[in-house]
């Protein structure tokens, strides 16, 4: 439990440090460029909603796959010992 608290403390400290480092400087003047085709912004934004779920699912799946495979490898190493 103490170990978890220490790790959590380190993570929180890092978040605070990152936030402090985010100091606004020169504002970049954004020049609007005229597109060659009319952008379909609303339709494109709907794609993003589905995309977000897909991203979360793939990341979760990848980490789970790696975690399970690693656990199996560690078990087989323990058995060999």
């Amino acid at each position: 439990m103490r170990l978890l608290e220490n790790r959590l403390y380190r993570v929180i400290s890092l978040i605070v440090l990152l936030t402090v480092l985010l100091i606004p400087s020169i504002v970049w003047a954004s020049e609007k460029i005229e597109p060659l085709v009319e952008p379909q912004i609303e339709q494109a934004n709907i794609i993003l909603i589905y995309g977000l779920f897909l991203i979360i699912a793939v990341i979760f799946g990848g980490l789970l796959w790696a975690y399970k495979a690693n656990r199996d490898v560690m078990k087989s190493l323990e058995q060999k010992k």
Partner: peptide, 8 residues
């Protein structure tokens, strides 16, 4: 997918 939809 977003960019392609953006241009139709």
């Amino acid at each position: 997918a977003y960019c392609t939809t953006l241009v139709g």
